[in-house]
Structures are given as structure tokens and as C-alpha cells.
Amino acid sequence: MAIIEQIVELLVRAVMQGTPLLFGSTGEILTEKSGNLNLGIPGIMYIGAISGVIGGFFYQNYTSSYNMILAIIIPLLSSLAGSLLASLIYGFLTITLRANQNVTGLALTTFGVGLGNFFGGSLIKITKSDTPFLALSKISAAYRTTLPFANKLGLFGQLFFSYGFMVYLAVVIALIVSFVLKRTRVGLQLRAVGESPATADAAGVNVNKYKYFATCIGGMIAGLGGLYYILDYSKGIWANDAFGDRGWLAIAIVIFAIWRPNVSILGSYLFGGLYILFNYVSVSMNLLPLMQMLPYVVTIIVLVIVSMRKKRENLPPASLGTNYFREER
């Protein structure tokens, strides 16, 4: 029984670890389907996190009344606004100005991390805290509210109902994105833009509009990953650089999931589980770096297999990473 309890505990923690990755990878998949390789996702997730923290900070500290709905909505909207703005920077540079996507993305990541640390550090100074961190405990409590019957269902309840709402939101968004990409006209046209923008353009699809919308919506979804990490997973604690390199992991999952958001649900939880597995199994500490390497090894293996099989639906969008010049057709 103790072993089952431990396994359930591991799975629960894996889901919690995997959720920021799921938001990030779903957002990146949507973006990449339009042909935009947005390496700025780690930065956008950072900006999504700090924007939500800023909103939550002012709500928690400057209002006398406390309303749970507002405690959820205000950080959520601030986060969406922040990551939308960051995505617009990327979109404007790469779509309208046709700047190099890799350079723009990497710059945006550096910018996003710096912006997050700057505002995070500034807020910490406002609180005059003894130790350098911010605690949005009340906001986090709202985000971590679980269904009332979760505790009564034993291990089953723990495994399926013990999370805050954003864990379910991540899955729902991934499924919706998956559905839209695969089964709707909009999804078909978006994929056309990503595969061959010239053909899509000739067929009357507004390439720039699709690229802008995919990049911005994708960025906003990714930004929610940052918000989840701070307000739910970290119990509302903001400390500079705490988000770590999860944004890069999210991009690795895109490849692992072969550009399918529904596969990335599993991929994210798997990566999340591998990240914390060492707490639950006893391995020699010398092997630990090898265990932490596993997600990346698996990604490389997937890449190798996918490239060898050359099935067209498993390949990245054909125009990924290139900008569209209508005049060059």
C-alpha cells in the first residue's frame, strides 16, 4: 500500500511539475504551426509570470477587501496582457519587419528574464522584506483551491482532483488547440501558412493575420505556464530566477510531441516526473545527472526516429523559422 501511495504522490507531483511545461509547449506548438519558431517562449513565460505577480501584488496589498474571484481574475488578466505584449514584440519584429526569428527569439528570452528580475526585484524592495522574495499567499490560496470532494476520495481523489484549476485549464487548452489544428478550417489554414505561406497566400489566406494571431495566442498560453508556476506550484512565492530553464524544456517537448498538443500532455507530465524522480527512487548520486538528462535523451531519440521514418505528418512545419516575403514568390 505504501508503494501505491508513493506512486500516486509521484504522479501528482509530476502533473504539477509538468503543467508549466504543458502551457509552454502548447503555446509554442501553436506558434510554430504558423511557421514562427519562437525561441522567446522562455522569456514570454517569465513575463507572463511577473505580469501576473504584479497584478496579484497590487490586488493583495492595496485593497482592504478580498474577493476570491478577483484574486484569480486580476493576476490572470495581467499575465495575459504581459505575454500578449511580449508576443507582439516578437510578431512585429519577425512578421512585419521580417527580422531573423532565431535572433529575435533569443533576444526576447534574455529581455524577458531581465524584465522579470527587474520588476521582481523592485517589488521586493517595496515590501522591505528581510529576505529577498515576495509572498502572494492569499492569491496563491485562491489559485490552489481544489474541488471540495477531492479529500474524500482517497488516492483517486488525490490523483485526479487535488489540483488548482490551472492544471485542468492546461489540459483543456491543449485539447482545444489540438482539435482546432486538426479538425477546423482555421486550423487547416494555419497549418497551410506554416507549411507553405506562398500557397496559402495564393489561396486567399491572410498569412500575416494568421501568423500574428498564432504567435500572440500561443505566447499568451505559454505565459500562463509562468503564472501557474508562481501562483500555484510555488505557493505564490516570487524570487528572482526561480522559474529556471522550464521554458527551454517546453520547447524540447514540442519536438518530443512531434507538434501535437495532445501528445504534449503526456510529454509534459513525463518530463515533469523525470525531473523529480530522484526524490522517489534510490539511485546512487553519481547517476543523478544521468537521470536528469533523460528527458533530453528521449527528445533526441524521438528526433532521430522521426527523421528516419520521414512521415510527413511528423515533420516540423516546412516553413518553420523562415519569414514570408510575398515579393519573393
Binding site: I54, N61, Y62, I126, T127, K128, S129
Partner: peptide
């Protein structure tokens, strides 16, 4: 959209000018 967001951020920045009480 850019203008709307700029307004939002400036509102936040204006609020940031206030003194905090820690909470």
C-alpha cells in the same frame, strides 16, 4: 492593442509609485 496594453502598464507603473505596507 499596443496602445491598450501600454495604458494598462502605465496604470500599473503609476500604482507602483505608491508606498507599500508589505501585506
Amino acid at each position: 492593442a499596443i496602445i491598450a496594453i501600454a495604458m494598462l502598464l502605465s496604470a500599473v507603473a503609476a500604482l507602483a509609485g505608491c508606498d507599500g505596507e508589505g501585506g
